[in-house]
């Protein structure tokens, strides 16, 4: 089992001006191969102009068990959103 190709995550920029987006994963022996495989697997239909690959084990992910303390405190900070503030009707856009 030890010789299996590791898993990589693939991020593709579909066109300039857009961010790289997670497209999926694949197996590759090294970074160059991961890039080539990503090109062959995920951009066969002209989906990309730039690719990032990162070995999956290097990604640190937050734990859903902590999502309460991580994300819920942001829920009631309504003053961070423009709709929190009242404007006179005459001002249509601000």
């Amino acid at each position: 089992m030890k010789n299996n190709w590791p898993l990589w995550e693939v991020f593709v920029r579909s066109k300039n001006g857009l961010e790289h987006r997670h497209f999926g994963s694949l197996h590759a022996a090294d970074a160059e191969m991961a890039l080539e495989n990503a090109r062959d697997v995920y951009t066969r239909r002209n989906e990309g102009v730039s690719i990032w690959v990162v070995e999956s084990k290097h990604i640190t992910a937050s734990n859903p068990e902590n999502s309460g303390e991580l994300f819920e405190p942001a829920q009631d900070k309504v003053y961070r959103h423009p709709t929190f503030y009242t404007l006179p009707d005459e001002v249509k856009h601000m």
Partner: peptide
């Protein structure tokens, strides 16, 4: 030899 290489050769 595996899916990735199969796809590459077909390309």
């Amino acid at each position: 030899p595996n899916l990735e290489t199969d796809i590459a050769l077909t390309n």
